[in-house]
Design a protein around this nucleic acid. Structure first.
Lengths: 118, 118
DNA sequence: CAGCATCCTGTGCGATACTG
DNA sequence: CAGTATCGCACAGGATGCTG
């Protein structure tokens, strides 16, 4: 027990912060996690207000970060399904403390009915 | 045990995400937390590469979010000290899982010697 | 010392139209 | 269906100089 718990280093976040800190980063990861497996247009519907170009570039980012996995079915019409990688699933659980912390500020259970607030 | 742990809602992050998702948000909160109490120019030195205008606006943001507290000593030359609020301290612990998760990707202990990697 | 005022640049992100 | 191409805006954030 030397200096531990006094000092926290954020350098591990380098790189990932550029992805998960973006407006849609965590939203997409979480949405895929909630459904297990989602197609492009399903994401477009779930994440209302996102533009196709934004979604496409985010999906590329997340795939490069190895947070999601992309499976292409060579069919007509084409089908592409996205799912979380093991690492993506870990991320999803790693942010739960953060969400719980955030939910303590306002009373979000009022307009949010997810299981965290029961 | 109904739908819990299947669905995660990110809406609590609304608002805070705009602050902590910014490039310097968590960095500043964490730096103040590491030192307990810091002055403006001390932050300028610790956070190398940050510009005065950016730091100033971030500090205002964080103060408005009630994550940090500002204490002004009416002296000459003026002295201003920043410290974490209770909520800010909670945030700092809430992101530890996230950092641990991130540190599993690359081997950051190589160029980072903080206590998390011992 | 602790900022604020100003200018400037990069880019995240949206809107729309088009393609394999 | 699953994207790409193009345009455009808003804003984060850097650089510099000035002030109480």
């Amino acid at each position: 027990m030397k200096d531990q718990s006094n000092t926290i280093c954020l350098c591990p976040l380098d790189g990932v912060i550029d992805t998960i800190g973006k407006k849609w980063g965590l939203l997409i990861v979480n949405e895929i996690g909630n459904h297990g497996r989602l197609r492009y247009n399903e994401l477009m519907s779930e994440l209302k207000e996102i533009s196709p170009s934004t979604l496409a570039s985010m999906l590329k980012d997340l795939e490069k970060q190895e947070l999601i996995e992309k499976e292409v079915f060579r069919e007509i019409p084409p089908r592409v399904e996205y799912s979380l990688s093991a690492r993506g699933r870990e991320l999803r659980t790693a942010i739960i403390p953060l969400i719980k912390w955030a939910s303590k500020k306002g009373n979000y259970s009022v307009h949010c009915s997810c299981s965290l607030f029961k």
